[in-house]
Amino acid sequence: MSTFGFFCDTSACSGCKTCQVSCKDKNDLDAGIRFRRVYEVVGANWNKTDEGAWEHDIVAYNLSIGCNHCENPACVKACPTKAMHAELDGMILIDPNKCIGCRYCEWACPYGAPQYNKLKGIMQKCDFCRDYVLEGKPPACVSSCPMRVLEFGPISQLIEKHGDNRSVYPLPDPSITRPALFIRKHPGAKLAKKLNASIINREEVKE
């Protein structure tokens, strides 16, 4: 039952990852820990024509995802210590003093949001830039986007402005966790399944 959410216009996200790095800068994260990740979805068919030219059916788009501060957070449910918890304003945070580094939230989250910090032995995660938001500032990632495709706000306002779509291929079924993530679909997403699209930048989003 989160109050705040993100909006991502996947039709115009370039995949530049400025959001990812602005987040790393704000949170002082070493390489390997990404509170925000940009997934590259690609599917295609290439065919040589009789003329000797090339034809393609192709879809490609990017999904910039932090933590979705889900209304039904699987991570919170899974966490044995209650380190992972929901604040009153709906933001899902990790209390570093409680976390035992069991990594169970990492399994439970269908969005890859919890990020394990090997050095500290605890889990870390996008905290919605709670300090900024409470100060009245947008989260670092949102204000960084050169394409202006990221937004944040109270869920009700986001729904009012963009409708209540919380998924695009191949994001998990939103009924699992009710992510506070609202998406404008890339027009190519229609063909994604048909073209057997998948996330092709694994080495960029995971260790």
Binding site: M1, G136, Q157
Partner: peptide
């Protein structure tokens, strides 16, 4: 929780009011 935002409840000492939340 919805009310919490709408009414501009005090959180962390800062008053949140809804219209400002769009970037």
């Amino acid at each position: 929780r919805r009310d919490f935002i709408k009414k501009g409840a005090v959180a962390g000492g800062v008053v949140l009011t809804s219209p400002i939340w769009f970037p």
